[in-house]
Every structure is written in C-alpha cells, then in structure tokens.
Design a binder for these strands. Structure first.
Lengths: 338, 338
DNA sequence: CCTCTGGCTGGAAACGATTCCTAATTCTAA
DNA sequence: TTAGAATTAGGAATCGTTTCCAGCCAGAGG
C-alpha cells in the first residue's frame, strides 16, 4: 500500500533530475531552465504527482488550515457564518477544521491545545465567555492568530468581528414604544457578554428617549438557551404586571419565548407584541409575521475570513463592524391591552 | 518565534536521555525502566511538552482527521448530522475537516483530491449524484475509507448510512388516503437518487394498497431546491386538476411548497393537506401543525462515525439503516374540497 | 570463568517535502 | 585566452516524530 503513493522522489527519478530541481519547478522558482521545466512537468503529469500537504506543512511550518470553533454548529446563524467563511478561506487555499465547544469552557480549553498541536495557522472562534482570565492567558500564550466573533476581551491580541447590536435593538424598541407599549420585557443571555450589553444599551437608549422607566423585573438576562427563555416568559406572564411586548435577544431566546407564548395560548401580534433578534431559516413561514433585528450572517463569515487572512499574512489586529437593522413587520404593533 | 516551540528534542536534552527514549515513554512502550519513565515525565511536565501532530502524522501515515463533505452545511438536518458525528469522532481522537460541495460535482471532485493530499484517514460524504461514473472511479482510486450518506453506488467499496425512507412516506401517504385524499402530489429531488426512489416507492406502495391510480402529472421529481418546489407547486395549482394533498420530500421541497401555498393564499390543513418529509428547527412554531416523516439526524451522525471508524481499523464495508416514521399531526386531515 | 539471554538504551534511518549552499557550466568582457 | 559573473543543478540539512537495529550491561546457567 505504501508503494502506490507517488512522491517527489519518483518524479525526480523518472525525469532523471534531482529532487530539489523538481521542487523548484513546482514552486515556480526563478532559476529553472526551460529544458528542466519541461522534463519535470512531463514526469509530474505522467505520474499524476501531487505534493503532500503533510510534508510541506512540516517543512514550511504552515498547515493551510483554520480552526473554526463555535458553541453550537446547529445554530442556523453560525452554520451560515461557517459556510461563508469556509467559502472565502478555500479560495485562499485554506481548509477549515470544525470544532464544537458545546458551550463548555473546559472543552474550549482542550480545543485550543488541539489547535496548537495541529499547528493550525489561525483560529476563528465564538467563545463561551469573555471574562475567563484563564482563556485570555491561554490565547495569549498560544501564538496563533485569532479572530473573535462578537466578543471583546481587553488585553488580548486578537481581531474581532463585532455586530452593532445596539442600533437594531434601539430601532426595534423605539417602534414598540411608538406603538404605545410601556411594559416591555427583554430576554437574552448573560450580561457579562458584549453582545448582551450592546443589546441592552439599545434597549435602554430607546426607553430613555421614549420617556419610559425600565422595570428591572422585565429584564431577564441569564442564558441564551431556549429553556431559560421559556421559563422566564412563563414567569413574567404569571405575575401581576404582565408585559405587553417582548424583545427576545438571540435565536434560542426567541424560540423559548415563542413556545412559552404558544403554551400560554397568547397570540403573537395580537395578545402580545414580539421582536426577534436574529432570524432563522423559514422565518417567514412562522405562525406570525415577526418583526426582527437583522444582521447578515454571510457578511460575518466573510469578514472573519478576511480578518484572519490579514492576521496570518502579518497584518495588525483590527475589528470589523457588522451593522444590524430593524425589520418592521406586524408582530410589533399595538396589542389589545397594551 | 521558532525557539518557543518545545519539541521532543528539548525534552530529551532536559531529561538527559535519547530522543527515542522519550518517544518510547510517551507511547507506553514496554521496554522502559521506571527510572527512565520518571525522568522523562518530569521533563515533559516541566516543559509543557505536547507532541506535534504533523510530525507524528508524517511518520505514522495517519492524520487522525476525517473529511466531512456535504452539499450544504446550512441545511439544518446536515448540521445536526455533522455535530453528532464530530462528537463521536472526537471521542476517538479524530478531528473533522468540513467541506461544502455546494451541490457541484466538479467541486466535489476537487475536494476528493484535497482530501488525498491532506492524507485524510477517512471520508464521510453526502454526494451530489449517484450515477457519475467519474465519481465512482475517483473514489475507488482514492484508497481512503469512505462512508456515504443516503447513497448507494454499485461496485463501490464504501460503507453507507441508508435511511429507510419508503416506510415513513408509505405510512404518511396511507394516512392521507385514509382521510379521503385521492389527488396527491409528490415533490422531491432527482429520480436517480436512492433517496428519491425510496420515497417514491413508499408513495406508490401506499397508492397501490389504497386503490389509487397515480396521475404522473402529480409527480414532480426534479431538484431538492426551494425554487424548484415553489414553481412546481404554483404550476400544479394553476392547472385544472388541483391536488388536495402534497407530500414534500426534503426540507428544501417543504420550504418551497409552503411558500407557494402561502402566496396562493391556501391554508395548509384546511384548503390543502400537507406532509413534510424531514423536520427542521422550530418546526412546531410554524403557522400550521405539520404532519411529518421523521428520522433522527443524531443517529445518522453517530452511525456514520461508527462506520468510518470501523473501516479505518480494517473492518469490512457495511451498511447501517436508520428508520423513518410518520408523525401524524393535523396538516394531513381531510380538507374542504378533498 | 565464560557464554547466553534479555531488558534497556542510544543512534540513525525513515516519512516527503523545501531551501540553503556549493559546484559546474556557460557566457561576457578584457 | 582567461578571469569573473551569471545561470542552473545537485547534495545535504532540516522540519519533529517513530521505529528498527545494534550494543551494553547484568544476571543466570553451565
């Protein structure tokens, strides 16, 4: 089985030249005579030779591979990001190794070490948390260029794709207020993440401008999971001061909230207003015509690819900002008892 | 920058032993004295040494990497398959390289060659087509173990995960017939794919048993795309003999069909019955309570991982069958003019 | 006391490329 | 004609491991 792999050795022998000459021809080195080029190319095509990545990588110290680590590949937003990043990176000759961290920071840690051992050239990651001091030191000691998705960590040598969440959420919340909503709930992930803080800022700004005082019990900022959101919404509607509108930050939050409303037999857009932050496949086929805060996942993927390539070729760390905007549909209207 | 990578060389020097001894300790070779083991382990932990995958791979001829090639990673079903396969393979020490073929068989061809150059240990693939003779010869010449998802190619040395589509579709179609439907349309992908033939068989069997003659114009078997399905449904409902029920084979087919019905202002479950083959995230939040044919994507991922590991360790090619079953909900009921 | 066995160890050859260095050849110019 | 420069080719080192092979030393058996 070993003898069926054709190496540069075989090519050299067949062409009757030295190994180094074959290598020079294939890497378009300047000092190659026409005669040599022809001989080698003939041998290459006759043998169907293709250089081995492994050996090249070992020698050159670059694997042409990018590690893509996310918390959950089944999240439709991330899968689009992964697809478009892969598309861009492949054009530049890179492959991607996909790793799930399952939202577990110890798995995340292992993954970084795996990346290092595999001599990954660069990393694109959506980290579990921003405050883990350990994560910070791991990344800094890794010596591998990294692009963070929607995370901002002080003192970290990393590029980042940051979405401007506050703008879209502000527009959306303002629209709710304009439609007469005063009791607006906001469900999303942990407050220590930039993404949550940014959304919260948009929410607060809109309330301030609209002259609405935020009741802290309407802020449910705990986890991105469906489960969390589901139970928080049930809890809110079990209380005396039921909200008339909900802003759900993230796909999980939206799914959990919509399920809760369904179980409560409350009709979205009629009994309660709703804004989904982020959309998912077949969004338009849902039972209600949801207003949303949109960002383009393709753009996130493209930008992250651009940033990591930039870093790999020695460029400085930088940030790319992806805008969000409000897509007004019918679920944000005034409701019966609003 | 080169000097900060700690190699087996440094460990050997620090421990005052030969490189080969370090390697023996780390690979749990039998011929190692306790004294040696202790010295080496001390040096390893003090230096924080981790063996380099590249060099190991080059020497051993195995990269501990699986290539995962699918037509579209944003397909929610595939992304779950990818996730569960990754989970299983990681437990066995493998990483996965994810590649999109974008449903393009020339890209697919390139990808195979990339896998070979990267010395991938095994491939899990959802191929674009089954009949391309070229693909067959490429795979056979590749010399890399491969597991096919839902494809059956004669004369190919490959394992496969096959879903038993016909059973679920038959159950579903029988239910439609029992509910009085006679004009049932079936939209799905190309007829030359096993997956389509298998679904069609279930459909035909149910019709035969139910005493219904199939009108060929109700069979729309062209592509898996949303677009195709959308236009075929519009076409069907523009004709004289409108169907009273639709079976949509695949997520794309379902999406396209549901959009067409929405545009036609036909209510699913009321004006027309509908069966979705395969579910997607937040299926339960759709505007209608869709009956479906279900298969477990997690199981597909697990099985494909199991089969490829089996092949890599020298086992024979084999098949795993994943069952489908009918999930009866309300969209399959009798309808107004049915 | 000598040989044989067997456990351990170190040295060196792979694995398949790239690249530096040196040498041979050709060409130009004095 | 010959020195010196410019091309071009080959040889060898290198990347970081694993693994084969040979040798050393200690203990056992005669």
């Amino acid at each position: 089985m070993k003898h069926n792999r054709v190496t540069i050795h075989h090519v050299a022998k067949k062409a009757g030249v030295a190994i180094s000459s074959v290598s020079r021809v294939l890497s378009n080195h300047a000092d190659v005579s026409d005669d040599m080029r022809i001989k080698v190319e003939k041998a290459v095509s006759e043998l169907g030779y293709e250089p081995d990545y492994l050996a090249q990588s070992l020698r050159k110290g670059a694997t042409q591979t990018i590690g893509f680590m996310i918390r959950d590949i089944t999240n439709p937003l991330f899968s689009i990001v992964a697809q478009s990043a892969e598309f861009e990176l492949r054009k530049a000759g890179y492959s991607i190794i996909l790793i799930n961290s399952h939202g577990d920071s110890s798995v995340e840690k292992e993954n970084f070490s795996l990346f290092k051992r595999r001599r990954i050239d660069g990393i694109i990651a959506s980290l579990v948390s921003e405050d883990a001091a350990q994560t910070k030191s791991i990344i800094n000691n890794l010596g591998i260029p990294i692009v963070l998705l929607d995370r901002e960590i002080a003192g970290l040598k990393a590029s980042a794709v940051i979405c401007n969440h506050s703008i879209g959420v502000k527009e959306a919340t303002s629209d709710l207020i304009k439609n007469g909503h005063k009791r607006i709930a906001f469900v999303s992930g942990m407050k220590d993440l930039l993404i949550t803080r940014s959304r919260l800022k948009g929410f607060e700004d809109a309330c301030t401008e609209g002259g609405i005082k935020i009741d802290p019990s309407y802020l449910r900022l705990g986890k991105f999971s469906e489960d969390y959101s589901y139970h928080e919404i049930l809890d809110l509607f079990g209380s005396k001061k039921k909200p008339t509108a909900i802003v759900a930050g993230g796909i999980g939050a939206s799914a959990g909230a919509l399920r809760a409303l369904k179980d409560l037999k409350l009709k979205v857009g009629k009994d309660v207003a709703f804004i989904a932050v982020d959309e998912w496949p077949m969004f338009d086929l849902l039972s209600s015509d949801l207003s949303s805060v949109y960002r383009d996942p393709d753009e996130i993927g493209r930008e992250s690819a651009r940033l990591i390539l930039n870093l790999i070729t020695g460029g400085p760390t930088s940030q790319a900002v992806v805008q969000t905007h409000y897509r007004k549909r019918t679920s944000s209207r005034r409701v019966l008892n609003g």
